[in-house]
Structure formats: structure tokens, C-alpha cells
């Protein structure tokens, strides 16, 4: 009995460790395939790309912890990216207003998802898939398929700097991600909200009977997921300069893969954001290694799927043993 417990308690941390070790191994492998791969510049670049996945994965972690899922990531992210450039027109003066409105849009869409799940009792897959469609239609329709005059604007310089500006030689984006890791881990680990999240993920009915505000918490978690998608969209425009159509599409699979790699239990209740962040890093490292090996685009898509399945099978076995 005691042994079982120790294994159990260690599992989250162990998976985080696996993900980190996988990332390091991949850098070593990459160095062999493509000398310079594990150099400082290259690692920074890869981690920066991983950070966008990591930010979306933060939102995904929140909802997966209660056994939900957010399929509205692609077009919330894309919509946010386009909304930012349209609102700011690339001017720093309009940046704050554009940022607030864009983040608010993300949180608002997430909130609607949450209301659908918590109050209308629509399955999370259905409501978030529908919301993704709604955002796709709105984004395409309102921007005329990204043909509008403002659509070609650049991200405000301040947003671009928030991503690229080196601090002690490291891009600011990585500090941003570090801050998110610290804050999200603290919220999940130390606060009432975090405890409630895990409780709902373990057993929503029992939590409700213990006085936990299940609906309120659920709505908030989905709102956070929307917020993080929007944040990732904003930073991606800052990274690339301009918005494009379909830029959010890869992030759905990547965020779910990161969450699964990081050991967040897909039915909820177990896992940590640190794990998901490590998952994002190792996933991005994997993709970079494959790119260094001249793996074509479609290969990536196959790899995401295979990685998710293999890990689900491995972890599923472990759950069964536990």
C-alpha cells in the first residue's frame, strides 16, 4: 500500500523529468545530425518556438486538468493575431488598447466555451469545435480573407521587442514564458483555485458536494485557455511581424501533444504545467531535429500524431499498473 502511494505521488514529477530528459537527448541527437544544433543560439531559437506552444499548452493544461479539451485554439489564436494588427495598425500608441482588446476577445471566447460546458452541459469537444468554426468564419469574413487594408499591418514595435529584445543575451520571450511557468505552477499548486481545479478533474460530482463552485471554476478555466491562445497569437505576430491565415492550425495538435508528453492525465485531475512546458520543449526539439534531417512538412503532422499515440499507450499502461 505504501509503495503504491509513493509511486503514485512521484508520477507527475517523473513524467516532467522524462520530458526534460527527452528534450536534452534530442538536442544531443540533433548535434550529431547537424553540428551546431545544440549551440546556444540554436537552443535559444528552438526554445523560443517552443514557448509559443508552451503558452497555448498552459491554457490547454487548465482545461485538460478538469477532463476537458479546447479545440478552439487554432482560430482564437489566429483571430487574436489578426485583431492585434488591425487594431494597432503597427503603432505603439495604439498597442495597449489593441493588446487589451485582443486578450479580452480571447478570454471572452473562452468564457463562452466555459458557459457552454458548465451551464448548457454541451460536451467540451462540441462547443470548442463549434467555437473554432465560429472564429474561423468571423476572422475570414470580417477580414475579407485577410485582404483588408489594415490586415497587412505589422505588429507594434513594442510587441515585437517583447519577443525579440535580448535580456542578458536571452530573448525576452523566454523570460515571459518563464514568468508564465512560475505563475501558472503557483496558481495550480498553491491556491484555492488550483486545488479546486484538481478536485473537479478528479470527480466533479464529489467536488460539488464538498461545496466547490464547479461551474464557476470551469468557466474560469476555459476563459484562461482562451486568454492564453490569444496571448500566443499576439506574441506570434510579434515574432513574425505579420499575421497570416492558418497560423494557428499547428498549435492545436502541438498543445495537446505537449500536455500529453508532460504527463497531464487526459481524463483530468493529475499533472502539472511544468510537465506540459517540458513537453512543449521536447516536442519542438523533436520537430527541429526532424527538420534538420530534412523531414518534409507533412512528416511533422504524422510525427505529432504518432508521438501522442505512443505516449498515451505508454502512460495508459502505467495508469493501469498504478
Amino acid at each position: 500500500m505504501a509503495r503504491f502511494s509513493r509511486v503514485h505521488l512521484g508520477r507527475d514529477r517523473r513524467r516532467t523529468l522524462y520530458a526534460l530528459i527527452a528534450a536534452i537527448l534530442l538536442f544531443v541527437v540533433g548535434e550529431f545530425v547537424h553540428p551546431g544544433f545544440a549551440g546556444l543560439d540554436s537552443v535559444e531559437a528552438i526554445l523560443t518556438i517552443a514557448s509559443f506552444v508552451g503558452l497555448v499548452a498552459a491554457g490547454q493544461t487548465f482545461v485538460v486538468l478538469i477532463g476537458g479539451i479546447d479545440l478552439s485554439v487554432p482560430w482564437v489564436l489566429n483571430g487574436a493575431a489578426i485583431l492585434l494588427v488591425i487594431l494597432s495598425l503597427g503603432e505603439d500608441g495604439r498597442a495597449l488598447y489593441a493588446l487589451l482588446l485582443t486578450l479580452g476577445m480571447g478570454a471572452g471566447i473562452g468564457l463562452l466555451n466555459g458557459v457552454g460546458v458548465a451551464f448548457l452541459e454541451v460536451p467540451a469537444v462540441v462547443i470548442t469545435l463549434a467555437m473554432n468554426g465560429i472564429m474561423e468564419g468571423l476572422t475570414l469574413g470580417l477580414s475579407g480573407g485577410l485582404t483588408c487594408a489594415a490586415c497587412a499591418s505589422y505588429a507594434p514595435p513594442v510587441v515585437q521587442r517583447a519577443v525579440h529584445e535580448p535580456i542578458f543575451g536571452v530573448p525576452a520571450e523566454l523570460f515571459l514564458w518563464l514568468a508564465v511557468i512560475v505563475i501558472v505552477s503557483f496558481v495550480l499548486g498553491r491556491t484555492r483555485f488550483g486545488r479546486h481545479t484538481y478536485a473537479i478533474g478528479n470527480n466533479a460530482r464529489a467536488s460539488y458536494l464538498a461545496g466547490v463552485g464547479v461551474r464557476f471554476t470551469t468557466v474560469l478555466l476555459y476563459a484562461l485557455s482562451g486568454l492564453f491562445s490569444a496571448l500566443a497569437g499576439i506574441l506570434l505576430v510579434g515574432f513574425g511581424g505579420q499575421a497570416s491565415l492558418g497560423m494557428g492550425t499547428p498549435y492545436l495538435f502541438q498543445s495537446i501533444a505537449a500536455v500529453v508528453i508532460g504527463g497531464v492525465y487526459i481524463l483530468g485531475g493529475r499533472g502539472s504545467y511544468l510537465g506540459a512546458a517540458a513537453g512543449a520543449a521536447s516536442l519542438t526539439a523533436l520537430v527541429s531535429v526532424l527538420l534538420a534531417m530534412n523531414m518534409p512538412d507533412y512528416g511533422r503532422s504524422i510525427i505529432y500524431g504518432v508521438v501522442i499515440l505512443v505516449l498515451l499507450l505508454l502512460y495508459g499502461r502505467e495508469e493501469g499498473e498504478g
Partner: peptide, 23 residues
Amino acid sequence: TEGLLLPMTIRDNLTLAILERIS
């Protein structure tokens, strides 16, 4: 289904209803 959160710690289960008072 309606009692304890079995995978969570005994502590978490005991304090779930009084988190407001100890935070």
C-alpha cells in the same frame, strides 16, 4: 462517485470544504 477524491491526498480531501477559511 460522490464521496472522496481518491487519487488526491488525505489532506486535500479533508480541507476541500474549508479552503476559503484557510486561504
